[in-house]
Amino acid sequence: MKTKYKHLLFVLFLLLMLIISIILAFSVGSVKMNISEIINGFTSKNQSVEGRILYYARLPRILAAIIAGAGLAVSGVLIQTVLSNPLASPGIIGVNSGAGLAVTFCMALFPEYVLAIPVAAFIGAFITVITVCSIAKNAGASKLTIILSGIAVSSLLNAGISTFATFYPEIMSGLRDFQNGGLSGVTFEILKPTGLMVFVGIIIVLFLSEELDILGLGEKNALSLGLNVSFYRFLFLIIAAVLAGAAVSFAGLIGFIGLIVPHMTKFLLKGCSKRIWIFSSVMTGSTFLLICDTVARTAFSPYEIPVGIIIAYIGVPFFIWLVFRERRRRHD
């Protein structure tokens, strides 16, 4: 079968997985529901208890998982391509911590302005991207330098977050959840602007996926093919900051998805174009975070585990399995 059709089939499979995980996330929890109850809950005119649970508790959380998963995954794809570095991700190069510091700043000083949080997260993420890239560029711009600069800047920003927590102890409880990453308490109010930011960001990236593909050939080849490399690098880094900032503003410091999902998708869709890689990463990121969040809120009910812990428990073994499968395949 032609590779293109294989990829298309796999994208359809990912879409099916996302739909199944959405249905699963709606149906499990303290109140279990089957598909007809879910449909009734949404469609009945007099909203029942189930309807309210679905609409006010589960729907925002499901949307949050989809938005954050998609945003972080695509942000990872962009950062890895632009920096030609498979080890780069929003978490590792400090973008999440930059957004985190800005969010902490807002939580401490302007707790009443909820809508300022995504904007602050974007500004924090963007300033961090520019800082890390400038340090790496002036220090030689090797793959290792970018990672080291990111780790160093991340540590500094995390120290800033802890400093805020020391001087504003009232944000401590919220800050702990924020640092672990989680989707509880997410509201439509914050999801509307962040969802829009992620949606527009992904559409722009899909539209410019050919430019991203060319950028992936390396600077010299990209220039030879007529691409304005500096402009597109800058643009893609801005979009990566918007996507990661939007996700971090309500989901906290979930760092692993931006690193692992692009690789997972790449392993599963060997040799695909960037357009398919981005589209698949959207679905893989959303499905993965949604499954992890569903496990986080139901596995030890009534207690809830931070989703970051579940991501590590599910994601790391799966990623190691993929790496070994890939190695076996190469040896065969």
């Binding site: 590779t3 030609s84 593909d213 992936g216 050939l217 390396g218 010299k220 080849n221 030879s224 790449k266 060997k270 040799g271 174009s273």
Partner: peptide
């Protein structure tokens, strides 16, 4: 160019 990357494409 003299040095070329090996991107993950066909």
């Amino acid at each position: 160019p003299q040095f070329r990357l090996v991107p993950d494409i066909t």
